[in-house]
Design a protein around this nucleic acid. Sequence first.
DNA 1: CTGTATCCCACACGATACTG
DNA 2: CAGTATCGTGTGGGATACAG
Lengths: 129, 129
Amino acid sequence: MGTARRPGAYVCGVDAAMDVIGGKWKVVILWALGEGTRRFGALRRELPGVTEKVLTGQLRELEADGIVHREEYREVPPRVEYSLTARGVALNEALAPLGAWGKANVLNPSPAAGEVREDDHVPLVAGPA
Amino acid sequence: MGTARRPGAYVCGVDAAMDVIGGKWKVVILWALGEGTRRFGALRRELPGVTEKVLTGQLRELEADGIVHREEYREVPPRVEYSLTARGVALNEALAPLGAWGKANVLNPSPAAGEVREDDHVPLVAGPA
DNA sequence: CTGTATCCCACACGATACTG
DNA sequence: CAGTATCGTGTGGGATACAG
């Protein structure tokens, strides 16, 4: 088995959530989308080194989990916009404390890591649906 | 590449944290340890299906990341106790909202998922060090 | 522009056996 | 009891090419 424990044998809410955000690019996508709706290409440019196939895959999974909304405008050239669903927004907010922790304990492992100021990943909330 | 993006190229605090809790058993270990100090064997019994090798690996990584503390009592038979460090306790607390989200949106995807009561993984805080 | 279609591979995880 | 030592494996992710 790779990593996830999909079979529904979740021990607690956290590892259930981990299954949703476990992909390599998921949280970054979440973050980007948290700042507002994004087109496929824009998203790709924001993720350093992701390929189309993988980005598509991650987005499809997030969509299947009801985290992102995919709006397809059939025109030429084609245009597709991704945004967070209400559930995605909630997830993003639930991720904020973890982001603050990571910032304080991994990015800036300051000795007396106690206070965290700055923007700790509390997006502006966006996304229709 | 497997999954993590260790090279230090973190985009935000969240994916930095993901690197720490990304292992298949990490969050469950965190949870168990959040309830109190555990011996190796006890931990193994709490995780359904983990092997010694893997459990050891996960614990070693958490230890290297300063999340768990390993206390070795050299006696016969040998005894080793694992507990959360202060940083580990903080991480566990930062995980609480995510646990609540997972519970409400993955475990019990109730239609009008709005309120969450019960214990949403807010451990009793344990671990010396 | 937004994707499929293939092929490929590293690496986290697992099974089993053995040891201080 | 609490691990190492080996060997094997599935799969998430990457490279590249092509398509509507």
